[in-house]
Amino acid sequence: METILIASGLRKTFTLSKKQQQLEKTNQKVKVAVDGLSFTANKGEIFGLLGPNGAGKTTTLRMLATLIRPDEGDATLDGISVVKDPDAVRSRVGFLTGELKLEDFFTPNYLFDFFSSLHGVEPAVAAGRKVELFGKFGIDHFAEVKVGNLSTGMKQKVSLVISVVHDPDVIIFDEPTNGLDVLTAKVVTDFLLELRERGKTVILSTHIFSLVEKLCDRVGIIIDGRMVACDTLPAVCGGMSLEDRFFELYKDCKGEEA
């Protein structure tokens, strides 16, 4: 098994504004979102980060995708450091999260070409990929409709396709099925399985147990920014259901603190 992603000792803190302090009901100025997180992911597997809301999943993925820099620690993708060479990492990963929006003014067709060009994809290759992906997600029916006029589900599909215009080896998806209707969610999970089949590595985050059980080869459980368990699904569960095992870990973790 070839390791493609190594995260070691990732730590990220945010300085909270007065408003954020009120929202979080705390008077601490600094929020530790991710606290010394280490894990690895292998080539050709689907790796899941499972954790409750606020555990630090999105923050971890944003660091891997080089949108933000870790305070401490580093992660390497194919040996390339997200801290030292973020530009090179960006050309190898595809990132999808709710935070990344598409401009309302443009059509899916135009945006696909635009992002293909920014990723340095040859026009001929991009054209072929567009036909294939647009067909698979049914985007060809609204390829010339401005994004502003699309439904949430349609937008999500376009965002997904845009995130893989450069056919990256590592695909990082934050809560891939959140807010999708069941049909679209199915299209997305099928796509993730297909990516694995093609030898791609998928890192996803979720708070949904069934999604992990259905898709993931290995799983890391994050609670309060720390990795409390990380292994293959059977090894983590140890005969229990994932849900039961999760709450056991959660109790251990919270109990320690109290």
């Binding site: 990344l100 929006k101 598409l102 309302d104």
Partner: peptide
């Protein structure tokens, strides 16, 4: 404001 710049920032352009 609309969050579209983040989409540009994860592309490999400088």
């Amino acid at each position: 404001e609309r969050g579209t710049i983040a989409t540009l920032l994860i592309t490999p352009i400088k």
